[in-house]
Design a binder for these strands. Structure first.
Lengths: 128, 128
DNA sequence: CTTGAACCTCAAGTGGCTTGAGGGCGTAGC
DNA sequence: GCTACGCCCTCAAGCCACTTGAGGTTCAAG
């Protein structure tokens, strides 16, 4: 199958496929007259990559997952990747919730104390 | 004051200050023998920039906020920026919470159904 | 006068692509 | 034969917000 067909089949853009190849995430396929020709294994791999990226694994993590799949390692490995990832997602959520609280407090502070004054004096802009 | 002093006073790295100048976020200061010399206004501006960046405003948003401060616009402007920002923080939190739920479900799915099988068959890696 | 810290500029690297320039091949219609 | 279209190719640059490094200059202290 040509690259455009693979791209549609995996819902990934053509340049993205070439990019994945250039960074060594996907194996370079055979060529016919200069054009890349893919088999069904490439589609499987690309679907897996897309799945990992949708779950927000980094490219490096995706590479590691791909490697453990190709080596048919036990799925406890996969679970370890996922758990670590879950930890970092939760960490980021916590950071964002703290940020949300900070900004929300500043907005309501502005409403109750400084609304109408000039920007340089607004409580939102007072660094601590 | 020299750039190193300014950097310490505002808790910002020296290259970052030069970077802010290069993108037009901070005004280029006077020079003495080729070296940048800053006044107290530069410190105020840089403190404000740092504050905005800590609140995770983008550089462009920070630039707009800085402009509204320098024009002494009413602080309702500032509040509008902050509210818009709060909206995008909340949106990102919602996205991450959905992602967290997805990954957590995959991990517990792996624990109950497939733990021990080979990675290619692990439920975590089954794209939908 | 020498040393060492602090300063300077410019370029490249980070992540994960996207976009664009400039060109080749194959087919379909006129 | 000629043109237009659609697909493919490579290479380079752009996005964000810096950080890091190379290589060179200026300043302050001893």
């Amino acid at each position: 199958m040509r690259i455009g067909v693979l791209a549609k089949a995996a819902s990934v853009s053509v340049p993205t496929i070439r990019y994945y190849e250039s960074i060594g995430l996907l194996a370079p396929p055979a060529r016919q007259g200069g054009e890349r020709i893919y088999g069904s294994e490439a589609l499987k791999a690309l679907n897996l990559v897309r799945h990992c990226r949708e779950l927000d694994f980094s490219i490096d993590e995706t590479r590691d997952i791909l490697a453990s799949v190709q080596r048919r390692l036990p799925c406890s490995d996969t679970k370890t990747f996922a758990e670590k990832h879950l930890g970092s997602i939760r960490k980021k959520i916590a950071e964002l919730r703290a940020l949300e609280a900070t900004v929300a407090a500043l907005v309501s502070g502005c409403e109750t104390t400084c609304c109408g004054s000039a920007a340089p004096d607004c409580v939102i802009l007072q660094a601590r």
